[in-house]
Design a protein around this nucleic acid. Structure first.
Lengths: 169, 169
DNA sequence: CTTGGAGTGTCAACAACACTGACATAAACT
DNA sequence: AGTTTATGTCAGTGTTGTTGACACTCCAAG
């Protein structure tokens, strides 16, 4: 079962593709993702919000004026699920929803001042950890990190990702 | 706010630590984790199991004979939460729970034959994606990927991770 | 112009899975 | 004997996902 590929190898060995290496990669993803969300989760817990709120806030901040449907595609949840989150955020004055000018079916979403402040708090915490990890690992490792993650995405996710990425660059 | 650090840089530029780079790293983690869990999730949905069952099965397989308490520490959930999952897995004949020989308070957990088969199915799916991503990215990128993920973990998680990693090597 | 379908958003009900708190049992330790 | 440890259970709650049903808006075909 490909546990430890024996026999002749090409120049750059394929040892990094053994089942054991892959399993370590899987476990690394699992444990790292926990760290990745830990800091914002702690902040959100005090505010009666959850990870879903964080995600919504993050992407609304990232693409102000976006429509609900666009957000739906990025987040990959049902509109009902997103709607519950948005409703509380709007009620709490963190998000502003404006009926579209051209198409009144659409709602365009923006963060209010309070929303931007929470976004800043959350992303400061998350970035601090990411920054520490990046700095410890160094630029080459970071490049590899991003390459592998990108290769791991579904193609639609990769499309959303690169669209966001390129929208700022 | 460190958006695009200007001025003099050291030899190996710190451009990879800009807020924008960090944000892209954050979004890459988000989108990649979705892909990471997508394949097992599809399989589990047909079986009335969820991600929590997958995690339990994975780590029981990884460390056969482990105790409930050990699993609790690895998974980072409450015993009530884990217990609900274990109860169904034991009832369905996928996991076997045996009273400890030395310490009869402990329960040692193992996968049954059926459990191993499901584990195989799930991890085949997950490994296939990981393998494709690793192969596309190449060995250096994979090394960087693991370096960054490891740096992103909480220290207790990193301890669990390396303990598992070294237990097989 | 009206009507029907597509797009969009909302309400309600339910399931999965996490949490806390309280408590029970058995075994081990002091 | 009394305390601590390991495990399991019951009850209640919260977040976040799901489906189903429905209302409103827009656009285009009849």
């Amino acid at each position: 079962m490909n546990r430890r590929p024996s026999g002749s190898q090409t120049g750059d060995s394929l040892l990094f593709l053994t089942d054991e290496q892959l399993r370590q990669g899987i476990e690394a993803m699992f444990f790292a993702y926990r760290g990745f969300t830990a800091d914002p989760d702690r902040i959100l817990a005090d505010l009666a919000y959850g990870r879903a709120h964080h995600r919504a806030i993050h992407f609304i901040n990232r693409a102000p004026g976006t429509t609900v449907n666009n957000l739906l595609n990025i987040l990959g949840v049902t509109k009902q699920s997103l709607n519950r989150v948005l409703r509380t955020l709007i009620a709490d004055g963190l998000v502003e929803s404006k009926v579209g000018r051209h198409d009144k079916r659409e709602r365009h979403l923006k963060l209010t001042q309070a929303g931007r402040e929470l976004e800043q708090t959350l992303s400061d915490a998350q970035r601090a950890r990411m920054r520490a990890a990046f700095r410890d690992a160094g630029p080459e490792a970071v490049a590899g990190f991003r390459t592998v993650l990108e290769a791991m995405m579904d193609s639609e996710m990769r499309a959303s990702y690169t669209r966001l990425k390129d929208s700022v660059t």
